[in-house]
Every structure is written in C-alpha cells, then in structure tokens.
C-alpha cells in the first residue's frame, strides 16, 4: 500500500499526457474524418494514407521517432513531454479519424442533402446537423480509444517521461521489490481505465439521442 502512495502522484502526468493526446487526436482526427468523407480526391487520398500508414506502425516507433525529431530540431524546447504528447496524439489521430469516419458514414448522405436543400451551406450543415449526431454515435468506440491511449501512455516512459510507469520503476529500484511496485502501478492503471470507461458510459447515456 505504501507503494501506491509513492507512485500515485505521477498519475497527474499520465492523465495530462492522455488528455492532451486525446484532445489532439480528437481535433485532427475529426478534420481527417471530414476530409475523407467530404473532401476532394486529393484530400481524401492524403487523409486515408495518413491513417493507413500510422495505423501500421507500433506506438513505440512513433514515440521514438517524435522524440528524436523534437530533440534534434529543438522543437518546443526539445521537451520530452511535448514529444510524448505529439507521438500519442499522432497515433490517436489516425484511430480517431477512423472512428469518426465510421460514425459520419453511418448517418447516411440523406441528412446532408436535406440540410443543403433547407438552404444551409455545407460547413453549417456539418457543424449543426452531421457532427452533433456523429460525435454521439462515436462515443462507445471513443471510450475504447481513450482507454487505449491511457494504457499506451506507459510507453512514453521509454523516452524518460516520469509518468506512472517510470515512477513505479523508480520505486521498484529503491525498494528492490519489483513485484509489489508493478502490481501497485497495475492496480492504479486498472482503476483509471475503469473510471474512464464508466465515465464515458455515463456521457454516452446522458447524450444519447432520443429517437
């Protein structure tokens, strides 16, 4: 139990990395999804290629690639934290773009046509008709994605970000009790993913469309 107390403060950094990566993935993923459904051929191809390439790469490859890029170009002050967020965010962008694309496409093209025939411009129809429904439909898949990013954030410990996992390593090295330290950090992750899933279940119920 003392282990948990030592490790727990690092949850702040894990949550920060997770939330920022998810936010980046949300914004860019949504743009990519819209580009893939409503964009011209070039835009569609570019968005689809990004998604395909990034989804074929292990998260760890992205983490190191972005780490080296940020380190060598001194981008954002060469911060490890920034490279971690960029890497996880870049991965999540690809996965979230697939989630939102699926959600938008499941709405059917009739909605856009109806909105257009009512005199809305395409951006207005997108903003007021399509996306509010698509985001709601995407919540269950998005909830999975959030849990995955939370768990994958442990990988950024590989480039020296002292989040939960790295912190557990420190505690283990200090106490020479590796089993307890990693069981403790496992328990913390478990609680976090559990709370994330429950929280998003609640959001899903709260905002479900009454048809």
């Amino acid at each position: 139990m003392r282990c948990v107390v030592y490790i727990l403060p690092a949850a702040k950094l894990t949550l920060l990395v997770t939330v920022m990566s998810l936010a980046m993935g949300f914004v860019l993923g949504m743009l990519l999804a819209v580009a893939r459904v409503y964009g011209g051929p070039v835009l569609r191809f570019a968005a689809a290629s990004y998604s395909r390439v990034v989804r074929s790469l292990p998260t760890l490859v992205m983490v190191f690639a972005l780490y080296y890029v940020v380190l060598m170009t001194d981008f954002l002050g060469g911060s490890r934290l920034a490279s971690a967020v960029l890497a996880l965010g870049a991965c999540s962008t690809a996965y979230q773009s697939e989630i939102f694309r699926g959600a938008i496409q499941s709405l059917g093209s009739g909605q856009m046509l109806a909105a257009r025939s009512l005199g809305m411009s395409r951006p207005v129809a997108l903003r007021n008709v399509i996306l509010p429904q698509a985001v709601r439909l995407a919540i269950p898949a998005w909830s999975n994605e959030a849990a995955i990013v939370l768990k994958d954030s442990s990988l950024v410990s590989a480039v020296g970000t002292v989040e939960l996992f790295r912190r557990a390593e420190h505690v283990a090295a200090a106490t020479h009790d590796w089993l307890t330290a990693f069981l403790a950090v496992g328990l913390i992750y478990f609680c976090l993913t559990f709370l994330t899933n429950r929280g998003l279940d609640w959001v899903e119920r709260r905002y479900r469309l009454k048809v």
Binding site: W178, Y189, F190
Partner: peptide, 20 residues
Amino acid sequence: LFRGTPLLVQLYVVYYGLPE
C-alpha cells in the same frame, strides 16, 4: 485485469516480478 492494465506493466510483472 489484463484488459484494464498496460501490456508493459504485465510484461514487467512477469519479467521482474515473478523472480521474487
């Protein structure tokens, strides 16, 4: 348990934890 925790943690429990 296995779906709720990172693979990395599971790996470390097996590799560094089980020897104890």
